[in-house]
């Protein structure tokens, strides 16, 4: 994207700005004109994104009694989650572990399945590339709720698989293990987030300079060596952004555990939602959301760093 080049030239100009009067003035006015244009967008993002997140942080240090909020700052909510022997503490860790492991498996499965497709479209499809890309993109834009719901129909007690197998006479009674467990969540999410994996990986594969592969071939590398030493390391940015784009939002998914997870498949988002519904404890909900987000963020940072290190060793 063009922004890195822009910010680079802006920082260069900051150095020379003090000396050249006219030039500095011009650049400053470019800044002013740019931000004036961008202003309305930034204002909306402040109102609807930054301000709510700041309030979320404040709320997590407040206390709620009935319908009144006590704005004395306290760490009690975080103590309840991390230190004290409370039901919140046990629930948070159970659901956090479940959310992270389900999302981890989903991320792994989705990326592993998506890579060959992205590779196929980037390197082997020539004539109908556009068609393939559209076909792979459409599910990305269609209703998430309906895509998740489709799996409830398929895996349900009276669902497509059970009633299909029964009417074919293969089974006598419906299989109960299909729905309402972590596996059904993994299947559903791997399907719902497929496009998020394919597109970033495809972009990074498409960008690879083909002459590098030619050079390796000329120097005697076989197809596998070429793939592991050139294509795979160069596609890492796509793989990493796909993994982050899937892992972070799925740890906070609410719809899928609610529809296909059953009681043994509740995840962190369901616990957070309860604080804003039945339990009516907004500060606890805020603290749970921020704790989850912070830990997920830490996991992402460490995993990405470890992964980068491992891949650079391959090269």
């Amino acid at each position: 994207m063009a922004t890195s080049a822009i910010s680079q030239s802006a920082s260069q100009s900051a150095g020379t700005g003090a000396r050249g009067g006219l030039r500095a003035w011009f650049l400053r006015s470019e800044n002013a004109r740019g931000y004036a244009l961008m202003g309305p967008t930034l204002v909306i993002m402040f109102i609807a994104l930054a301000a709510p997140l700041i309030l979320l942080l404040l709320y997590s240090f407040w206390t709620q009694e009935g319908y009144t909020v006590n704005t004395t700052l306290t760490f009690d909510r975080y103590f309840d989650i991390f230190v004290n022997d409370t039901s919140e503490n046990r629930l948070f860790w159970t659901l956090f572990q479940r959310s992270v492991s389900i999302s981890g498996v989903v991320t792994l499965v989705t990326v592993l399945l998506a890579y060959p497709i992205a590779y196929y479209v980037a390197f082997h499809v020539k004539k109908y590339k556009f068609l393939w890309l559209i076909l792979l993109t459409i599910p990305f834009w269609t209703s998430y709720l309906l895509r998740v719901f489709a799996w409830k129909i398929i895996l349900g007690y009276q669902g497509v698989i059970n009633s299909g197998l029964q009417s074919l006479g293969i089974i006598d009674a419906p299989l109960e293990f299909l729905l309402y467990n972590p596996t059904s969540i993994v299947i559903t999410l791997a399907h719902a987030w497929a496009a998020f994996a394919i597109l970033p990986i495809y972009v990074s594969l498409e960008k690879i300079d083909r002459t590098l592969l030619e050079a390796a071939a000329d120097l005697g590398d076989g197809p596998w060596r070429r793939f592991w030493r050139i294509t795979f390391p160069l596609s890492m940015p796509g793989v990493i952004s796909a993994a982050v784009l899937i892992f972070v939002p799925t740890t906070g998914d609410y719809v899928t555990p609610e529809l296909v997870g059953g009681t043994q498949g509740k995840m962190l988002a369901n616990l957070i939602q309860i604080q804003f519904g039945k339990s009516n404890d907004w500060p606890l909900g805020a603290a749970l959301a921020l704790s989850g987000l912070a830990f997920v963020g830490l996991i992402v940072v460490f995993t990405v760093a470890a992964f980068r290190a491992a891949v650079s060793r391959v090269r």
Partner: peptide, 24 residues
């Protein structure tokens, strides 16, 4: 326009894609 901090501004605008919807 050449803008100072354009990258940061872009990052803020793109942020909703990286935050779970429940938090938003």
């Amino acid at each position: 326009y050449r803008m100072r901090g354009a990258g940061t501004a872009m990052g803020v605008i793109m942020l909703p894609l990286f935050i779970p919807e429940i938090v938003l």
